[in-house]
């Protein structure tokens, strides 16, 4: 059961090499505000894709879980305004934030352990909206509507995290590690059981596995992934607000995941990149403030032409099977 074929390894390494060289080839705006941003949001989208692709669970709580990691960092960060000057250093704070997100993921999984499909969607959406409203109304910890500012991130080898290269390479490192973690995990007994639950939960019980425990564990792992994304997004935005984890942010992450394709974790990053490009250049392409119309149209076209996103489109054009898509599968079941 190899993780990747030889061709896939070759392509992965080539893409990685390109990504490593990119800061020297592109203007700094592109490195930070396009590629860097796509990578950090892509991590959160990948946590959604992981659950959808291998577990068959569509969770809208991933942005909220990223937000829990983000708020954990922001509330306790040394430089935070207005709450700041805490003694906890970043090297302890970041793992704490990721642990909090992992725990939150497990709690979401536990709450939703018996629900499927539309009900799972509704429960996770309710949790997401609930948490952002809580953050918005809580002044003492979260500073309400304004959120928490001046979260600068750690210094790495003496360089500030705000340094373009430090931010870009740190994000790329984290994203690559998490991406390969997902590819590894889905070949372990845990990951195979997860795919078994996607295909047939009844059979999973019949051969002796506890479906509930595996579901909760998969949400915890997705929380771990989203947590890293949340921490990096908070550094990217130099802070966090309730709006950045609210319903619109949730929808944006879902749009990224669907545009890219829910069939394979790489789809999340492709979707995030496409989304970021439109978000950034909508004003120059069409008109100011028409971003939502444009991305909405792009979304519609992609979903109509290829229900399994750009990855599915690519796969159909090239006849190359990179993985399996939830969208095509549900369509097959219906026919």
């Amino acid at each position: 059961m190899p993780m990747l074929s030889r061709l896939q390894w070759a392509i992965s390494l080539a893409v990685l090499a390109l990504l490593l060289a990119l800061p020297f080839l592109l203007p700094s705006f592109w490195t930070g505000n396009i590629m860097g941003r796509a990578i950090v949001y892509g991590i959160v989208a990948m946590s959604l894709t992981f659950l959808a692709s291998y577990g068959g669970f569509i969770s809208l709580a991933q942005t909220m879980i990223a937000g829990i990691a983000g708020y954990t960092v922001a509330v306790l960060a040394p430089t935070a305004i207005p709450l700041g000057n805490h003694w906890l250093p970043y090297w302890a704070l970041i793992p704490l934030a990721v642990a909090a997100a992992t725990f939150a993921g497990a709690v979401v999984g536990l709450i939703a352990v018996r629900t499927r499909e539309i009900y799972l969607l509704m429960i996770t959406l309710a949790l997401a909206v609930g948490f952002s409203l809580f953050a918005q109304s809580n002044i003492d910890w979260f500073n309400g509507y304004e959120g928490i500012r001046n979260i600068l991130g750690p210094d790495i080898f003496g360089y500030p995290f705000r340094n373009l290269y430090v931010f870009y390479y740190s994000s790329l490192l984290v994203a690559t590690a998490l991406y390969f973690l997902v590819l590894y995990v889905v070949k372990t007994p845990f990951g195979l059981v997860l795919q078994g639950i996607r295909d047939n939960p009844r059979r999973v019980s019949a051969i002796g596995f506890n479906v509930g425990v595996h579901r909760v564990a998969s949400f915890a792992l997705a929380g771990f992934i989203a947590g890293w994304g949340g921490v990096l997004i908070t550094f990217y935005n130099i802070g966090i607000t309730p709006g950045s984890i609210g319903i619109w942010a949730t929808v944006n992450v879902l749009v990224m995941a669907v545009i890219g394709g829910l069939g394979h974790p790489i789809g999340a990053f492709i979707g995030a990149l496409v989304y970021t490009l439109f978000d950034t250049f909508a004003a120059t392409i069409y008109d100011r403030d028409r971003f939502n119309t444009l991305i909405g149209l792009v979304f519609l076209v992609i979903v109509l032409v290829s229900p399994d996103g750009l990855l599915g489109l690519f796969r159909r054009l090239t006849g190359w099977r990179t993985g399996r898509s939830v969208a095509t599968e549900t369509m097959e079941e219906k026919t």
Partner: peptide
């Protein structure tokens, strides 16, 4: 050890 995160 049903829930295992080690690849066989």
């Amino acid at each position: 050890n049903r829930l295992s995160l080690l690849k066989p």
